[in-house]
């Protein structure tokens, strides 16, 4: 009965959406601002990746809000899960030798890959968010493969705060030095398609990478702790 009502409701919604989508043709340019970013983005920000220049230069203040949402969600997860104190520490069965050795071999490589993606965000697809997730996946591998290893909670908090602090400080310095607005690009733009280019974009993306990586590692740490 409930599913029949749901199906009727959904088909009514689908009909409305189909009628309105009829006015939005697929594959034609729809916004003018997109063309502006593609034409002027290289000169104005110095980044080869236009998506990065939108996220970290034109709309950097929104990105700060997004990082804050991620921070609040990580804090909320910690608060929800941390109310139950652990009583006794159970004995964990250690991983086999092959698993342990493979995990120790792969862990630094994945960290390196995450750092590469974070740093090259203004040149290639990727950036701080993606690199941070890759770094967190390295810690997930360590939790699954090398059982019993733990990331120190103080270390996670320190790196996370450092990332957020760098973001804010770069924004405030931009306000004081560069222009009349928060997070303005005050460093030299450099040569297009070189690593040291695009002003503050690589610095902010490294900070975001550290912050996202440590936050997601904290989330994984809380969930693993809860499951044991």
């Amino acid at each position: 009965m409930k599913s029949i009502i749901s199906l009727i409701l959904l088909s009514v919604i689908a009909l409305g959406i189909a009628i309105s989508l009829d006015k939005i043709p697929f594959g034609v340019p729809k916004t003018k601002i997109g063309d502006y970013y593609i034409d002027k983005g290289r000169e104005e920000t110095g980044a080869a990746n236009i998506v990065t220049s939108v996220v970290v230069n034109y709309r950097c203040f929104d990105t700060l809000g997004e990082v804050t949402i991620l921070f609040i969600a990580a804090i909320g997860l910690g608060a929800v899960l941390a109310t139950r104190r652990k009583k006794e520490k159970r004995e964990i069965e250690p991983a086999s030798l092959v698993l342990y050795a493979g995990c120790r071999f792969l862990f630094p490589l994945i960290l390196l890959f995450g750092a590469y993606i974070s740093i090259h965000g203004h040149l290639t697809p990727g950036g701080g968010f993606q690199g941070g997730v890759v770094v967190a996946s390295a810690f997930l591998l360590a939790y699954l493969g090398c059982r019993g290893r733990r990331v120190s909670e103080t270390g996670i908090k320190t790196v996370e705060s450092l990332g957020g602090l760098v973001f804010i400080v770069v924004g405030l310095v931009g306000l004081a030095v560069g222009g009349h607005y928060f997070l303005s690009n005050f460093l030299s733009k450099g040569e297009l398609n070189s690593l040291f280019s695009a002003g503050v974009i690589p610095i902010i993306y490294i900070a975001i990478g550290l912050k996202v990586g440590s936050e997601l590692t904290g989330v994984i740490d809380h969930l693993v702790e809860e499951s044991e």
Binding site: P29, K30, T31, I33, G34, Y37, I38, G41, I50, V51, V54, V55, R59, D62, T63, E66, I69, L70, A73, A74, G76, L77, V80, G127, F129, V133, V212, L216, V219, L223
Partner: peptide
């Protein structure tokens, strides 16, 4: 292609992960 929706979705994916974890 239009870079604005891509930047928007980059934001939405990260927030989606946070909401899912919560």
């Amino acid at each position: 292609v239009d870079p604005v929706p891509q930047a928007l979705v980059l934001t939405a994916i990260v927030i989606g992960v946070a909401v899912l974890a919560l």
